[in-house]
C-alpha cells in the first residue's frame, strides 16, 4: 500500500472544526440549523477503495438524479463534489464527470466526459450509459469506488415541501429539510463578517465543504411585482438551473435550482404547484 493511501480524505471535517469564526473573533449563530446533519437517508453509497480495500470514506447519493464530479467556479455546480479527495486522486476527475439517475427499471449511470476514464466493472462508459448494480466496481479517473445500494435505493422518498417562499438546501442531489425562509421583501445572502458587514441570511454555519463556496456578500433575492428575483452581489458566482453564472437579475419559479457556488438551493413559492398568477397573488399576500 502506498503511504499516501493512508491519508484520509477529510470530507467529515465540518464536525471537527472549532468554529473558525470564533477564532476570528465573532460568533456564528445558527438559527437555521445549517450545521445539522441531513435526515434524508442515502440511496446509494460510493465507498472509496484505496489499496484494494474500502476505506469508509463514503459519498452518498440521496436523490434520484445526481451529477458527480468536481466543482470549479467556471464549470458550475455538481451534486456530489469529489474535489475533497487528495489531489493525486482528483486530478483526472471531470467537471462534471458522470451522471447517476433512476428510471422505471432501476438505476443507470452515464459518463459526461470524454477526456477522463470511467469504468463500471471493467467496461468503459465512454460511449453510452449502463445500468448500475449493487456491488459494482466504479472507476472515476484515478479513484475506485464500491457501489453499495442501501435499503432505500428502490424507493426514494422526499421530505415534505415547506411553506414558501423559501430556499431548500439541496445536499447530495436531494432537497433537505433545511430551509432558508424568504420572509421579507428583500433578502441578502452570504456570510456575515465584521469586515464585509452583515447579510440577512448568514450561511457561515454550513459545513466547511459547502461554506467555502459561499461569498461574504453573495446574492440578493427580492420580490419585484410579485415575482421573486435573484442577482449576484459581487464576483461570487450564482448559477440558475446549472447554467452559466448569471449577471443580470433573473426571475425565479418554484423548482428552480439556485447555486451559490456549489451550494445548491431549490426555490419554493408559497403554494405548491402554483402557476404564475397564483405566485403573484401569494407574493403580495404573504407580505
Amino acid at each position: 500500500m502506498h503511504p499516501f493511501d493512508l491519508y484520509p480524505s477529510r470530507r467529515d471535517e465540518a464536525f471537527l472544526e472549532p468554529e473558525p469564526e470564533r477564532l476570528q473573533g465573532w460568533d456564528v449563530p445558527d438559527p437555521l440549523d445549517l450545521a445539522l446533519p441531513d435526515p434524508l437517508p442515502a440511496l446509494i453509497e460510493l465507498d472509496v477503495i484505496r489499496g484494494g480495500t474500502t476505506t469508509g470514506t463514503v459519498f452518498a447519493i440521496r436523490g434520484p438524479a445526481v451529477t458527480v464530479g468536481r466543482y470549479t467556479p467556471a464549470t458550475g455546480p455538481v451534486d456530489i463534489d469529489l474535489g475533497v479527495l487528495q489531489e493525486h486522486e482528483r486530478i483526472r476527475i471531470g467537471l462534471p464527470h458522470l451522471r447517476v439517475g433512476r428510471d422505471m427499471d432501476g438505476w443507470w449511470i452515464e459518463a459526461m466526459t470524454m477526456y477522463y476514464p470511467t469504468y463500471l466493472n471493467g467496461e468503459s462508459l465512454a460511449v453510452g450509459g449502463a445500468r448500475l448494480q449493487d456491488g459494482s466496481l466504479l472507476v472515476v479517473g484515478d479513484v475506485q469506488f464500491r457501489v453499495a445500494f442501501t435499503a432505500r435505493a428502490d424507493r426514494p422518498i422526499g421530505t415534505p415541501r415547506p411553506p414558501g417562499p423559501c430556499l431548500r438546501l439541496k445536499r447530495d442531489g436531494a432537497p433537505s429539510s433545511i430551509t432558508v425562509p424568504l420572509n421579507r421583501n428583500e433578502v441578502t445572502i452570504g456570510r456575515s463578517s465584521p469586515h464585509t458587514g452583515a447579510v440577512d441570511v448568514d450561511l457561515s454555519a454550513l459545513p466547511d465543504a459547502e461554506r467555502v463556496h459561499v461569498g461574504r456578500r453573495h446574492a440578493r433575492f427580492w420580490l419585484d411585482g410579485g415575482v421573486w428575483r435573484v442577482a449576484p452581489l459581487g464576483r461570487s458566482p450564482v448559477y440558475l438551473n446549472r447554467g452559466a453564472p448569471i449577471e443580470e437579475p433573473v426571475d425565479l419559479a418554484t423548482g428552480d435550482e439556485v447555486g451559490l457556488g456549489n451550494v445548491l438551493f431549490m426555490f419554493v413559492e408559497s403554494l405548491p404547484s402554483a402557476g404564475v398568477t397564483a405566485r403573484r397573488a401569494v407574493g403580495t399576500g404573504a407580505l
Partner: peptide, 16 residues
C-alpha cells in the same frame, strides 16, 4: 447516529 457528514468514527479519532 451522527449522520451525514461523519462517515467514519475512526476519522475523528485519527484527527484528534
Amino acid at each position: 447516529r451522527s449522520g451525514v457528514h461523519v462517515f467514519n468514527a475512526d476519522r475523528e479519532l485519527e484527527s484528534r
